[in-house]
Design a protein around this nucleic acid. Structure first.
Length: 107
DNA sequence: CGTGTGACGCGAG
DNA sequence: CCTCGCGCCACAC
């Protein structure tokens, strides 16, 4: 299983944990906020191989598409999102409306 | 060390 | 709407 830079990984995990219920963030946005705008792939790898206690359902790609590799498939991902009140249309979320930006962080 | 791949992003056609 | 290519990275082979 792929490993990722521990520091980057930690930042990603903490950031994802800060996503409020009912909101989402994109891989690219997360990567950028963690100081690696080009490492959207890394975020995906962390999601797949990283800590399973992280609410990865709140992480989607820039188009609002659901995670292709989500355990149980995109349908499971959609179900998780809908449980939080996130409306999923055509396997996508209203990224424009639900995207969350960290107000500020003491990091 | 070259090549392929991946829960990505974006531009070009 | 679609595919294709390139970008960055880490990792498996």
């Amino acid at each position: 299983m792929p490993r990722v830079d521990k520091n980057f990984k930690t930042e990603v995990l903490e950031l994802v944990l800060r996503i409020p219920r009912g909101r989402v963030m994109t891989y690219g946005q997360i990567a950028a906020l963690c100081g690696a705008a080009w490492a959207a792939w890394e975020v995906g790898q962390i999601a797949h191989y990283g800590d399973p206690t992280i609410p990865w359902q709140r992480v989607v790609n820039k188009k609002g598409d659901l995670a292709k590799g989500y355990p149980g498939g995109a349908s499971a991902h959609q179900h998780e999102l809908e449980q939080e009140g996130i409306e999923v249309i055509n396997n996508k979320v209203d990224i424009e409306r639900l995207l969350w930006f960290p107000a500020k962080k003491n990091h």
